[in-house]
Structure formats: C-alpha cells, structure tokens
Amino acid sequence: MDTQNKSRSDDELVQLAANGENQAFEELVFRYKNALYQYLKALVQDEGAAGDLFQEVFLALFNHAADFKAQGKVKSWLFLTARNKAFNFLRDHKALTSLDQQDEEGNEIWHETLPDDSLPPLEQLTSCETAQRIRECINALPPAQRDVIYLRQYLSFKEIAQMLHKPLGTVLADGHRAIQKVRNSLTQGEIL
C-alpha cells in the first residue's frame, strides 16, 4: 500500500483513481469499508445483503470516479449511495415500513423531539446502558430513524442535511427524536 495515499484527501484519491491509480481507489476502500459495512448492515439487517450492497457502492465509485468534482463530498456520496441502495433493497423486499414522517402511532414525529421535564435522572439511565442493549434498541428503530443515528456517527448534522436535502433543523430533530426513542427504550427496559 502506498503510504503517500494515506495522507491524501478523499478528493485527491478520487482524482487519482479516475486517472487509473488503483492504489488510490484501494485506499478509499480501506478508509470507509468498516463504516459503510456497518451502516449498510444496520439499515438492511442482513449480513449477506449488506455485503452485496457494499460491493455495489464501491463498484459505483470505481466506475464513476471520473465524474467526480473535487468538492469534499466523497464521504457524503458514499453514504448517500449506500443509503439509496439499502432503501431500494428494503423496498424491493417490502421491509421498508416506516420512511414517512409518522411514528408507529401515526403522529407527526419529526419536529417536536426534545426532552420533557419528566426525564429520569442520568443515574437511572446508566444502570441499563450496555453497548449491546443500545445496539438492540437502535436496530429496533424504524429504518429512517436508525438511518440518522448511524449517519451521525460518520457525518455532521450539517452534512447529513445537505446529503438528504433536508433543513438542518429537521435533521437535528430527527436525530434527537431517535435518541429519545433509544432513551425511552432503555429506561423502560423494553425494546421498541
């Protein structure tokens, strides 16, 4: 592996890959493989399908590297492509049950998402916080909310908003709503 590539920006690597520099493309794969795989696995909840989509995302990058313009958006492009492919997969397999802006009870959920005054103290919450339990709670969220939680691990809210073409406030509200659901699930001792 070319050590020079490790210090290069995503944009530089894509430009080099477009010019046939294979090691630059491979560096991009190594840079994002874990995050993208985890993101896809979280969205489709199926390791085999996540693996197939993972390959499709990087094949798309390889085939369209020449079309990229240096705008610092390679990471967003990768996650957006992964997201689109995952949602297409879910739609085709009729597993996409809740991409609209309503919760399970049919309420508009995407805006009023902030904590009320009846929150339990932090100490109560931490008693049931384990990484496994949190992952279970997140994986039990509707796909759109799960999406925001996972995207937030790799992108800023601003980048997510740009990527999804949503107002920043909406994305922030989505994220906090999802966190609220996880919190409720953890403190009530039941998975959503």
């Binding site: 874990n34 795989y37 985890q38 693996g51 929150l119 496994q132 966190i179 996880v182 919190r183």
Partner: peptide, 23 residues
C-alpha cells in the same frame, strides 16, 4: 440533568456503534 443525560446517551451510542471490521 436532562441535557446531561442526552449528552451521555449520545456518547454511549457513539461508543456502542464503533464499527466492526468489514469482512
């Protein structure tokens, strides 16, 4: 307390979702 809790949970989620290696 509620903001502290929110902050703590955000951090806990971040730690829980540290990506495992892709095969």
């Amino acid at each position: 307390a509620s903001c502290r809790e929110h902050e703590a949970l955000s951090q806990a989620i971040g730690q829980a979702l540290v990506p495992s290696a892709a095969p």
